[in-house]
Amino acid sequence: MLDDRARMEAAKKEKVEQILAEFQLQEEDLKKVMRRMQKEMDRGLRLETHEEASVKMLPTYVRSTPEGSEVGDFLSLDLGGTNFRVMLVKVGEGEEGQWSVKTKHQMYSIPEDAMTGTAEMLFDYISECISDFLDKHQMKHKKLPLGFTFSFPVRHEDIDKGILLNWTKGFKASGAEGNNVVGLLRDAIKRRGDFEMDVVAMVNDTVATMISCYYEDHQCEVGMIVGTGCNACYMEEMQNVELVEGDEGRMCVNTEWGAFGDSGELDEFLLEYDRLVDESSANPGQQLYEKLIGGKYMGELVRLVLLRLVDENLLFHGEASEQLRTRGAFETRFVSQVESDTGDRKQIYNILSTLGLRPSTTDCDIVRRACESVSTRAAHMCSAGLAGVINRMRESRSEDVMRITVGVDGSVYKLHPSFKERFHASVRRLTPSCEITFIESEEGSGRGAALVSAVACKKACMLGQ
């Protein structure tokens, strides 16, 4: 009897593995994704193909990295998701002549009506938060230079001027797309009239992360975010950046690689679950690469896999709870928690219980395998993109072996128990001629924006502006 049951459990697990095998990517698959990513990057950089390229390769006008001589107080704003952060950054000489960066910050959550109302409502709310922060720190009387981390696709015309191309991540505030974001912020500050600010720089969160990590390690020339969304930036040779005049030196390019796949480059790798996630998203047909990796989508992918296993009578005796059938019910943090389970399955059992399920031991094991399959594919897909960037940098610099540091931020990278190990191992397999160091950014977005502002202020002083 026991043997029969054991055989049935083994057969069930084997069927589960057959279904989950769809998520496995072979090294040849990853090399294919990497080569296609490089081709799209090239198209994004070139003037004649930029418009139709899915990977936009947006110039950021960040050319210099901090040298350690900029000092002063800077205000930093960070808008990239449902939370908005205001930070005071003091850049100065530390002990023994070292450079020191001290920060104080406060988080504000953005109400739904500000995210989806008008641009005026959104930026009025942001300036209200700045006003509140300055009151708390008794700094209303000071006109501070301000660095703005704005983590949406922007076409820069200068370091302090950028046109919002399109909202992502659930934002829909009308009247912002096609307009200068810094102008919208300046107008809102003017409307309030109770404080003055000098907006000197606007950067993407990947750029802010790279600059913040450069402060720790001067070989950091790539910034990457794996959180709600997924994106990367890197220092490109100016001669390859056709959208900006000049051939000397390097400029940081914001790849906006989340949109890779929007022209069909990933079609052969998309599964039924991916198509369902895409169809029910706020932007169907867009940001397809990001939807395979980002935390906004990972939990939902797992939920759809679990429903398939229920329908195949391989999980929960073929019956799903009402909660499990509800879109968004299986949160991405559950994926991390399930994979963090120590082996007694308590954590998995508790999560499934909150979803109205009474799982068996085998159910718990199957749910864990589903989570591992989805998150491992995410790590491997992400590795193909980064390997594409790094191999490109090595080739354009004609280096036999390139040493490089990548600064990384984002909740999936930082909080998932195995993502970074799987990701690092896969990147290294795909970049055999590179020695890569990964560092995690601390308060990256805010500190990085302030350091970019410090560079901009120093330049302005040198130019006598």
Rank of each mutant, 00 (worst) to 15 (best):
2 L>I: 07
9 E>C: 14
9 E>R: 13
11 A>K: 14
11 A>H: 08
13 K>A: 09
13 K>D: 07
15 K>A: 14
17 E>D: 12
21 A>I: 10
22 E>N: 15
26 Q>H: 13
31 K>Y: 11
33 V>R: 03
34 M>A: 07
34 M>R: 09
37 M>N: 05
38 Q>S: 11
41 M>S: 05
44 G>F: 00
45 L>A: 07
45 L>E: 01
46 R>C: 07
49 T>S: 12
50 H>I: 03
52 E>F: 10
54 S>I: 10
55 V>Y: 03
56 K>G: 10
57 M>Q: 04
58 L>Y: 10
59 P>G: 03
61 Y>G: 03
62 V>Y: 12
64 S>H: 15
66 P>R: 12
69 S>N: 15
70 E>V: 14
73 D>S: 14
73 D>T: 15
76 S>I: 02
84 F>T: 04
86 V>Q: 01
87 M>I: 06
88 L>E: 04
93 E>C: 15
97 G>P: 15
100 S>N: 11
101 V>M: 10
106 Q>D: 09
110 I>M: 07
112 E>S: 11
117 G>H: 08
122 L>R: 07
128 E>N: 09
130 I>V: 05
131 S>C: 08
131 S>I: 06
131 S>D: 06
134 L>K: 02
136 K>L: 07
137 H>L: 13
138 Q>M: 09
143 K>S: 05
145 P>N: 13
147 G>K: 02
151 S>D: 01
154 V>R: 02
156 H>Y: 02
164 L>E: 02
165 L>F: 05
169 K>R: 04
172 K>F: 01
173 A>G: 00
179 N>S: 07
179 N>R: 14
180 N>M: 00
184 L>R: 00
185 L>E: 02
186 R>V: 01
188 A>Y: 00
189 I>R: 00
196 E>N: 00
202 M>F: 01
203 V>P: 02
204 N>R: 00
208 A>I: 11
211 I>M: 14
211 I>K: 07
215 Y>A: 12
218 H>C: 15
219 Q>D: 15
221 E>L: 15
222 V>H: 00
224 M>T: 14
227 G>K: 00
229 G>T: 00
229 G>E: 00
233 C>H: 02
238 M>H: 10
240 N>E: 13
243 L>C: 13
245 E>S: 13
250 R>G: 15
254 N>K: 06
254 N>V: 07
257 W>V: 01
259 A>C: 02
262 D>S: 12
268 E>G: 12
269 F>Q: 05
271 L>K: 15
273 Y>P: 15
274 D>A: 00
276 L>A: 13
276 L>Y: 14
279 E>M: 15
288 L>I: 13
289 Y>C: 11
289 Y>M: 02
290 E>P: 00
290 E>F: 06
294 G>C: 04
297 Y>E: 03
300 E>R: 04
300 E>D: 13
301 L>I: 08
308 R>G: 10
310 V>M: 06
312 E>C: 11
313 N>W: 10
313 N>K: 11
314 L>Q: 15
318 G>N: 05
320 A>L: 14
322 E>R: 14
325 R>N: 12
326 T>G: 13
329 A>T: 08
330 F>R: 09
330 F>V: 09
333 R>C: 12
336 S>D: 04
338 V>P: 06
342 T>D: 10
343 G>H: 11
363 D>Y: 03
364 C>H: 02
371 C>L: 02
378 A>P: 06
381 M>V: 07
382 C>K: 00
383 S>C: 07
388 G>R: 02
389 V>C: 13
393 M>V: 13
395 E>A: 09
405 T>L: 08
412 V>H: 00
413 Y>Q: 00
416 H>K: 06
417 P>D: 10
421 E>G: 12
423 F>C: 10
425 A>F: 06
429 R>S: 12
432 P>A: 10
436 I>H: 05
436 I>F: 07
441 S>Y: 12
441 S>E: 15
446 G>P: 04
447 R>M: 15
449 A>L: 02
451 L>D: 00
451 L>E: 00
452 V>N: 04
455 V>K: 14
458 K>P: 15
459 K>R: 15
459 K>S: 15
461 C>P: 15
463 L>E: 14
464 G>K: 09
465 Q>G: 14
465 Q>W: 13
